[in-house]
Amino acid sequence: MAMAKLVVTAVLVEGRSKSEVARDYGVSRRWVITMVQRFLAEGEAGLRPRSRRPRSNSRRTAAAVEDEIVELRKRLTEQGLDAGAATIGWHLGQRHGQAPATATIWRVLTRRGFVVPQPHKRPRSSYLRFVAEQPNERWQADITHWALADGTDAEILNIVDDHSRLLVGSVARSTFRAADVVACFHQAAARHGFPAGLLTDNGAVFTGSYRGGGWVALERELVGLGIRLTHSRPYHPQTCGKVERFHQTLKKRLARQPRAATLDELQTQLDTFRAHYNTARPHRALGRGTPQQAFDTRPKAAPTAAPVTVPAHYRVRRDRLDTTGCVTLRHNSRLHHIGLGRRHAGTRVLVLVHDLHIRVLSEDGELLRELTLNPSRDYQPQPKP
């Protein structure tokens, strides 16, 4: 506005020509003419900056489409289903054969007050993502909690296929024990086949590694089937991110349902949602396809590790070889170091112990060393070739 006053004063008060003023102040002659005309017509109010926004925009989203976007957002949210911009766009495409861009839908939702900025969230680009190449190549399993109508706590075991996101199992119990986890795993495998691997956290029903180094029922069962069992790093749930994210989706759905009074009612809700999630709900990570479609598209993986039969009288523990390629074992309150060679340093192993007879196997079932422990020696060297 200050520049506008200068050029108007130079023309109307000082009597200078518009071309001269434009040249001296480094502006266009057309702009000087416009400012003078506005001043003569409106006074100083005419010199204030004006919006350059066009009076109309032929490409603006129609009000009816915006209303439909808002209606879908509300309905999907009330049903406890995913109501993001991409999902709304998918539903619009199913209705009309075409839909606005995801960014357009996002702007509409933001303008209507449905999106709350959350700048504190960690950017997705900072995560290292991994996806199995085949169905049944890896399953992810985890247990979450849900309260019944009377406030009683229930546990829900969810098992998700890493490649297709297929929900292969969702089971409710008052408390999961080791045998329950094994039974649920076999139920899922009866429907979809055995996976090549299973990924879990370090819960007591999944591993005994952090509780004395022993075995739990699931570990013994999977080793006998030749299925590789791996665990996430302690306090790092992102490794099991797919099943952790599914917990959120499931709870969002359950929160919109009548609160189940019994475990049977909760199980019915889980079974209903499992069918909807697998066959009807479009999944963003699958290009808006369903998990069942992704699971059926590719050949299925199968267990590849050699099955290891562990006699009941054997003591079993999991361990990792140290940097020198040794594993430590306690016998009669004395520590013994068993050498396997530096080439195996860092390898995860199974140690099977029966009195003085010891077998050390890789997680794939390969026998790395078999020996009879010499109780008089702390270090058990490798046999000479």
Rank of each mutant, 00 (worst) to 15 (best):
residue 257 Q to I: 13
residue 205 V to G: 06
residue 206 F to H: 09
residue 229 L to R: 04
residue 217 A to T: 06
residue 270 L to W: 06
residue 194 F to L: 15
residue 203 G to A: 14
residue 240 C to I: 13
residue 195 P to W: 01
residue 204 A to M: 14
residue 229 L to I: 09
residue 226 G to D: 00
residue 265 E to F: 02
residue 247 H to P: 07
residue 191 R to V: 11
residue 220 R to A: 08
residue 196 A to N: 07
residue 194 F to N: 02
residue 206 F to Q: 08
residue 227 I to S: 00
residue 209 S to L: 12
residue 264 D to T: 15
residue 239 T to I: 13
residue 223 V to A: 12
residue 271 D to T: 14
residue 195 P to C: 02
residue 200 T to K: 04
residue 249 T to F: 02
residue 244 E to A: 12
residue 244 E to R: 07
residue 208 G to S: 10
residue 217 A to I: 03
residue 257 Q to G: 12
residue 248 Q to L: 11
residue 193 G to A: 03
residue 207 T to G: 11
residue 262 T to W: 01
residue 243 V to M: 05
residue 264 D to Q: 15
residue 219 E to Q: 13
residue 200 T to H: 04
residue 232 S to L: 12
residue 234 P to N: 03
residue 202 N to A: 01
residue 258 P to M: 08
residue 246 F to M: 09
residue 268 T to C: 12
residue 250 L to K: 04
residue 270 L to A: 14
residue 224 G to V: 13
residue 236 H to Q: 11
residue 235 Y to M: 11
residue 231 H to S: 09
residue 216 V to R: 00
residue 205 V to H: 03
residue 233 R to S: 14
residue 205 V to M: 04
residue 206 F to M: 07
residue 238 Q to K: 09
residue 211 R to M: 02
residue 238 Q to Y: 10
residue 195 P to M: 04
residue 250 L to S: 06
residue 214 G to L: 03
residue 240 C to Q: 14
residue 240 C to W: 06
residue 253 R to M: 10
residue 241 G to R: 02
residue 211 R to T: 00
residue 192 H to E: 03
residue 201 D to L: 08
residue 223 V to I: 13
residue 251 K to R: 10
residue 261 A to G: 15
residue 212 G to C: 07
residue 200 T to F: 04
residue 238 Q to S: 13
residue 251 K to A: 06
residue 219 E to M: 10
residue 224 G to M: 09
residue 265 E to D: 05
residue 243 V to D: 05
residue 215 W to N: 06
residue 249 T to W: 03
residue 269 Q to M: 04
residue 255 A to Y: 12
residue 263 L to C: 04
residue 267 Q to H: 09
residue 229 L to H: 14
residue 242 K to T: 05
residue 252 K to N: 15
residue 254 L to Y: 05
residue 223 V to D: 06
residue 217 A to C: 04
residue 223 V to G: 05
residue 247 H to K: 00
residue 206 F to K: 07
residue 200 T to P: 08
residue 235 Y to T: 11
residue 207 T to P: 03
residue 254 L to I: 06
residue 264 D to I: 15
residue 223 V to T: 13
residue 241 G to S: 08
residue 250 L to M: 04
residue 246 F to C: 07
residue 230 T to G: 08
residue 222 L to H: 00
residue 224 G to N: 10
residue 204 A to K: 11
residue 252 K to D: 15
residue 251 K to Q: 03
residue 209 S to V: 09
residue 237 P to G: 14
residue 206 F to R: 06
residue 209 S to F: 12
residue 198 L to T: 00
residue 214 G to E: 00
residue 234 P to L: 09
residue 201 D to E: 06
residue 205 V to D: 01
residue 233 R to A: 13
residue 204 A to W: 10
residue 204 A to N: 14
residue 190 A to S: 15
residue 199 L to C: 12
residue 211 R to P: 00
residue 198 L to H: 02
residue 190 A to D: 10
residue 190 A to E: 15
residue 195 P to I: 10
residue 268 T to S: 12
residue 226 G to V: 00
residue 260 A to N: 01
residue 213 G to S: 06
residue 210 Y to A: 11
residue 203 G to V: 02
residue 219 E to G: 12
residue 203 G to L: 13
